[in-house]
Computed example of a mutant assay.
Amino acid sequence: MARRGHRPSQASPNRPRFWGRHAVLAALANPERTVRRMWGTREALSALDLPPVLPITYAEAADLGRLVPADAPHQGMVIEVDPLEDLWLADVLETGADTTRPIMVLDQVTDPHNVGAILRSAAAFDALAMVTQDRHSAPESGALARSASGALEMVPWVRVVNLSRALEEMAEAGYWRVGLTGATETTLDAALGTTKTALVLGAEGEGMRHNTMQHCDVLARLPISPRVESLNVSNAAAIALYAVAAQRTA
Score class of each variant (00 low, 15 high):
83 P>A: 09
182 G>S: 12
151 A>E: 07
116 G>F: 07
63 D>E: 15
30 N>W: 07
140 E>T: 11
160 V>P: 05
165 R>N: 13
144 L>M: 15
78 V>D: 00
69 P>R: 05
165 R>W: 13
159 R>I: 10
225 S>N: 14
67 L>V: 01
227 R>I: 08
149 S>F: 09
58 Y>T: 01
238 A>C: 06
109 V>R: 00
28 L>Q: 02
224 I>S: 11
155 V>A: 10
161 V>I: 13
5 G>F: 03
203 A>E: 06
126 D>N: 15
19 W>C: 00
172 E>S: 14
80 E>Q: 07
163 L>Q: 07
101 R>T: 01
2 A>W: 01
175 Y>P: 02
66 R>I: 00
245 A>L: 05
116 G>S: 07
167 L>T: 10
130 M>Y: 00
148 A>W: 04
228 V>G: 09
185 E>Y: 02
95 T>D: 11
129 A>V: 04
204 E>R: 01
215 H>W: 15
31 P>M: 09
136 H>N: 15
100 T>C: 04
92 V>H: 03
164 S>F: 02
182 G>I: 12
107 D>E: 08
218 V>W: 08
138 A>K: 06
174 G>A: 10
7 R>H: 11
8 P>V: 00
152 L>V: 11
119 L>F: 04
147 S>L: 02
32 E>N: 12
151 A>G: 06
